[in-house]
């Protein structure tokens, strides 16, 4: 009974909540005159050519590919790198450990943005300005304190017997990590994958600045931003470009929802 009442209240709220997204998809299938005309979300006749126009003029295909490459690579790199450092920080004591933890923790509250020029300079100096690697490495090189602490915290709780048994079987340091410890840390890996995925996919300033001179390396976010400057009045084209950019992630989310929710929850639960 209570559930029914609450649901009846929540349904309109939720529909309002996703209304901007529904409007975007609806506008992407209308003519510009229709968007300015009525409020109905259903187009009189779906205008699929909005999508071809966005695909060709806004080069969404290229940007999409760039974004996927950047996101996937940075997620993989970040998981590998933070799990390794988290492992040793969580399980071993060695000279300099406290200093390293302090160094990373100190970066949490630093504002992003003003360090972008030296970063830009560094990418150039490494000869990465003409590749997607500049953005990938710069994203992976943020001091990911939360992830490191999550891994360290998790690894520190695992029983020592596991490690000892593996060592008795002749496993070295690397194998203890890769074959015994890391497989046990899948919950944390899921968390880091999801959070870094959201971070990387949402990133704007870094790809914006790093691709200023290379439009073909733009990500979706940067591409859309540039596209708006040129086609400001073409709402349907913009909506189509935005829909192409957003719908795949939304679909991935809908199908893999459980992982998203459990992954994000992992940041708090551990």
């Amino acid at each position: 009974m209570r559930a029914t009442i609450v649901s009846i209240i929540l349904i309109p709220i939720c529909l309002l909540w996703i209304y901007p997204l529904l409007w975007m998809v609806s506008a992407s299938l209308k003519t510009n005159a229709e968007i300015f005309g009525g409020l109905s979300l259903l187009p009189a006749e779906p205008q699929w050519q909005n999508y071809t126009r966005a695909w060709e003029q806004a080069r969404i295909g290229q940007y999409f590919l760039n974004t996927v490459v950047i996101t996937v690579s940075s997620v993989i790199l970040v998981v590998v790198v933070t799990s390794m450092i988290g492992f040793v920080l969580g399980r071993y004591a060695f000279p300099g450990k406290r200093a390293i933890i302090a160094l990373f923790v100190a970066t949490v509250f630093l504002p992003t943005g003003y360090t972008i020029i030296p970063l830009f300079e560094m990418v150039n100096r490494l000869g990465l300005a003409d590749t997607l690697w500049g953005v990938i490495l710069a994203q992976s090189g943020g001091a990911h304190v939360l992830y490191i602490l999550l891994f360290a915290g998790y690894f520190s709780q695992l029983p020592r017997e596991l490690e000892e048994a593996a060592i008795m079987d002749g496993a070295g340091f690397v194998r203890v990590f890769a074959q015994v410890m890391l497989p046990l840390a899948t919950p944390i890996m899921a968390t880091v994958v999801i959070l870094q995925f959201i971070n990387s996919w949402n990133d704007f300033l870094l790809p914006l600045v790093l691709t200023l001179s290379r439009p073909d390396l733009r990500t979706l976010a940067v591409g859309m931003y540039a596209f708006r400057g040129e086609y400001y009045v073409d709402w349907s084209g913009m909506a189509a470009a935005a829909s192409i950019s957003l719908l795949p992630v939304i679909l991935v989310f809908l199908f893999m929802q459980r992982y998203f929710v459990e992954g994000i929850a992992g940041a708090v639960k551990q």
Binding site: C14, L15, W17, I18, P20, L21, W23, M24, A27, I198, W201, N202, F204, L220, A221, V222, M224, Y225, R228, W235, M238, A239, A242, S245, L246, V249, I250, V252, F253, F260, V261
Partner: peptide, 20 residues
């Protein structure tokens, strides 16, 4: 539904919101 906006790209949402 409440979570959906989180997986969208902030910059693109910003642009769409100027229309909405």
């Amino acid at each position: 539904m409440f979570f959906l906006p989180v997986v969208t790209t902030a910059a693109i949402i910003g642009i769409m919101m100027t229309f909405v």
